[in-house]
Design a protein around this nucleic acid. Structure first.
Lengths: 161, 161
DNA sequence: GGTAGTGAGTTTCTTCAAGAAACCCTTTGT
DNA sequence: ACAAAGGGTTTCTTGAAGAAACTCACTACC
């Protein structure tokens, strides 16, 4: 069986997990949200095995969560973009982010902040701007480094270790 | 390695997925949200292998997402409850539910509805009551069967097939 | 008093997915 | 001509998931 499946479960949570609940899927999607669009960018940022990344990208394209667009020919090379279905996963990522910020090493501060573009207010896990109170859509948000964001050298060191 | 881990990722999404991103974890938690508290209830509802269920429950208790309380001695038997940390996963479940309702067989209608206790209004993926407009907490919500909820006989048939 | 059933696991064995590393192919740069 | 970059594919090894059987301490039934 190629995919996770949860036989006998009639439940939108289970169905969602069949599509994006496999190992790495959501992190790949998060990477694409942050603007990484090419195979090697994603591979080196996550450290996922290349064959697994190929399998995940192929599946996510099939399921219409991602779309691949050629950016050159000879050889054909593609970039991966989120479809509307993929963009709509934003609430799930925000929910994980909120929970992780609260429970995974909160003493270190948040690794990243999600803010309202222009306004600059921080966005909570209901996707509401804490400054202006507006309920926001994906395109009104941007991700910026937070207090616990590691410096590039630290990332390189961790990668070598 | 017993757990998923995502080495080198300093990110609240990745950290959350290390705790609850393994196969079955979130569905086990969903089951407990719906009031299933005992090993065999969860096992037969999900069809997860028993050894895997043991491993997940043990881990979730260790990580303080679940708490086990004895309900009889000789032999000792436990029920599993959500801690506050576990209850705080509700936004993640609601986000998956919203996405699944929208994209996984929406023509069939929703398998379950999450409604505002007392008020009866449906709750959206921002956890806001669609009827009275109030932002809700977990304890103000309840899960009821929706139009696509299968009848008990159908569930039994599916289990036999 | 023997037998069956239940609840919650544990053990064993098999299968499938993930990880690591090497290889491939085409183009660009030197 | 040779190396490097980009985006994979192949192969092999390890680790996790699934299925089924076994355990143990009761309880309830005939």
């Amino acid at each position: 069986m190629l995919y996770h499946d949860y036989p006998g479960q009639v439940c939108s949570i289970a169905s969602s997990l069949e599509l994006v609940g496999e190992r790495w899927s959501l992190l790949i999607i998060r990477d694409i949200f942050r603007g990484r669009r090419r195979f090697d960018q994603i591979q080196s940022s996550l450290g996922v095995a290349r064959n697994v990344l190929t399998a995940r990208l192929t599946r996510l394209v099939e399921e219409d969560v991602l779309e691949k667009r050629p950016y050159q020919t000879n050889p054909e090379r593609y970039e991966y973009f989120l479809t509307q279905k993929g963009l709509d996963l934003w609430p799930i990522l925000m929910a994980y982010l909120g929970w992780g910020d609260k429970y995974c090493e909160p003493e270190k501060g948040k690794p990243r902040l999600i803010v309202h573009k222009g306004c600059g207010g921080e966005i909570d896990d209901r996707r509401i701007c804490q400054k202006c109170g507006k309920p926001l859509e994906v395109r009104e948000a941007e991700s910026i480094p937070g207090p616990a964001e590691p410096h590039p050298e630290e990332v390189l060191q961790a990668a070598r270790a």
